[in-house]
Write a protein that binds this DNA or RNA. Structure first.
Lengths: 341, 341
DNA sequence: CGTTCTACGTGTATCGTTATACAGATTGTT
DNA sequence: AACAATCTGTATAACGATACACGTAGAACG
């Protein structure tokens, strides 16, 4: 751990034969340096391989670092989102640093605080489990943007979401247009402040479309508790039941894929016996070539917009922005068109 | 961004009616504080909700932060690994911070440097694309541990791996025991310094087992270039060829799953027409209920050991440690037992 | 030709924390 | 009673950068 050789701004200044302040000015592109001095200093920087110490920077200025708080890394949607955030962040001169939570409030709060302690310039929260009030308190202390979290009324932070209601309506309307009436929905358990969660909004969309088509009597929502592990067991049981609907709309591809797998496994003929639509149009879905019809929300776009929004707030915007991005139906082969009987 | 309300060590000192140094001593559990003063200060800390500024700490002491550098977030193996690292790190009082690379040398180098700049206490590299020499240079500057990267001879950093050679042998021997002879392997393109990559070691295992069984004539390795996107196309083409082997060993579940999907899609009868074994025993594989036989390397364990190893180095160990973890075959239904003809 | 600008550099206080040196109070030893 | 030893708390100098207030020199101006 030889620290003796660490190159600091002082080393550079000495090497270039100028003051520390001058080097700092060059680093920050500040006003008041001649072209020759700048070149001189930059040559020294390159020669010595100097890199400014972020920790020291953090004490007076900015860190040029954006914290990204993720609670569920296992969701295949998240990596794409992160790539999107990084892309836009780097374009604006920021790097990102990811913290992984445990999908519980306390832990997320702690992590977000720790990012505050590290003097990050801003924070992106992905599908946080905190309440809007808690996030509000954060937003006052540092620029904050949430993705996959609905809070239209929040003033101290921004939100970027896919238009989940409309996305769900696209999915359900697609099924209705294909002649389905008995359409069920699979979604997650909503323990607390459901209105913030994306799946709540998707359920609203489902209900709206069903009602609009006069299918209230067929509204049937299944709430799963464990997002990952339980779906398979549930699917097997569910598929055995005697009064299956003709179509199922799943809040996420992850569940839709498991439902499809389970159906195939017990010998169901898809999509003849059951039509399925997912949400996310995730890359895993495509990878598996299952032909899953899904609602596409571009994770890359969401990430891009989130980063841009955050940067604009870092740069001084104080009014909140709440953006909904367009969703789109990607029709594949998992939906069967009913012949009118 | 009202900074006015930020509680610092000064605020605490004032509130408790003691000096800043006294508070610092309490924070660090340093020698020279009376029980009463300690309690007094701790009360103030709790009352004010004070949290030490990590950035400021970084300038003199440690940050209690471990950087984790990931190049491919899309690989479903990575999240589990990260959870493992976090678990052990938190147990030792460290938090982790994740940086996402772009799977190219330059970008990774840059990221690792940026973690250095942030004065992190140590670094875990997951499947880095840098050369052992480059990592060696890092290891001199800060405690470094690599996961999924073989470099037995490295002195300035540690490596934690599954026993890839033995794991591959388990897989291939399993196929041989089931009566297969024409066994092919699917792996990745090895552009540079292959001996560091896990898939190179798995290929060595494959070759060793084939040779040991006198099946040299059937050795047949397919190198794919793009880990994610191309596999599907390749699989479709491959499955049409006239002289398919009876079994395929895939370097990773990700490819095995795609191969299975493609085979099903074109109507192949599995496992009768083709036996498939993967590697990783990834959760996605289980999720899809494909019955994929796979070699299990516990990502959680790997992460745990990696974090423990790193912490021990942070605490002063200077000699390098290179650990191989046990692999295990998880037999499911994707392998067909040949009846001797 | 003296005064005012402007451009360029430097000196220095400062951020929040840690670590060392030291001062004062208390206790112990002979 | 004098002196040493210990214990408790404070003052202060870093750490590596930034940002502000200046000083200086040459140019521009009337």
């Amino acid at each position: 751990m030889s620290k003796k050789t660490r190159v600091t701004i002082k080393t550079v200044a000495a090497d270039a034969g100028v003051s520390v302040s001058a080097v700092s000015k060059v680093l920050r592109n500040a006003y008041g340096v001649s072209e020759s001095l700048r070149e001189n200093v930059q040559a020294s920087i390159a020669k010595l391989g100097y890199r400014p110490n972020t920790a020291a920077r953090a004490m007076r200025g900015k860190t040029y670092t954006i914290g990204v708080l993720v609670s569920d890394l296992a969701n295949p949607f998240v990596p794409d989102l992160i790539y999107g955030i990084r892309e836009a962040a780097e374009g604006a001169g920021y790097r990102i640093m990811i913290g992984v939570g445990r999908a519980d409030r306390a832990n997320e709060l702690d992590l977000a605080n720790s990012m505050l302690d590290q003097q990050m310039d801003g924070l992106v929260l992905i599908g946080p489990h905190m309440s809007a009030d808690e996030i509000m308190r954060f937003g006052v202390q540092m620029p904050t943007t949430c993705v996959a979290y609905h809070a239209d009324e929040a003033t101290s932070f921004d939100t970027i979401n896919a238009d989940d209601v409309r996305g769900a309506r696209l999915a359900v309307d697609h099924l209705i247009a294909a002649g389905h009436q008995r359409i069920s929905m699979v979604t997650l358990d909503q323990f607390k402040s459901p209105e913030n969660h994306v799946y709540y909004h998707r359920e609203q969309g489902y209900r709206a479309s069903m009602s609009a088509a006069g299918l209230d009597q067929y509204i049937d929502v299944h709430h799963l508790s464990d997002p990952i592990r339980r779906t398979n067991d549930w699917a097997h049981k569910y598929l055995q039941s005697s009064d299956l609907p003709t179509a199922v709309f799943c809040w996420s591809d992850l569940d839709a894929i498991q439902l499809m797998s389970a159906a195939r496994q017990i010998g169901k003929d898809l999509p003849q016996e059951l039509s399925i639509v997912g949400f996310d149009n995730s890359s895993v879905g495509e990878l598996l070539q299952l032909g899953l019809t899904s609602v596409s929300q571009s994770a890359l776009d969401l990430g891009n917009v989130a980063a841009e929004t955050l940067v604009s707030r870092i740069n001084g915007r104080t009014s909140a922005v709440h953006t909904l991005l367009k969703t789109e139906l990607v029709a594949r082969t998992s939906v069967m068109t009913m012949t009118p009987s």
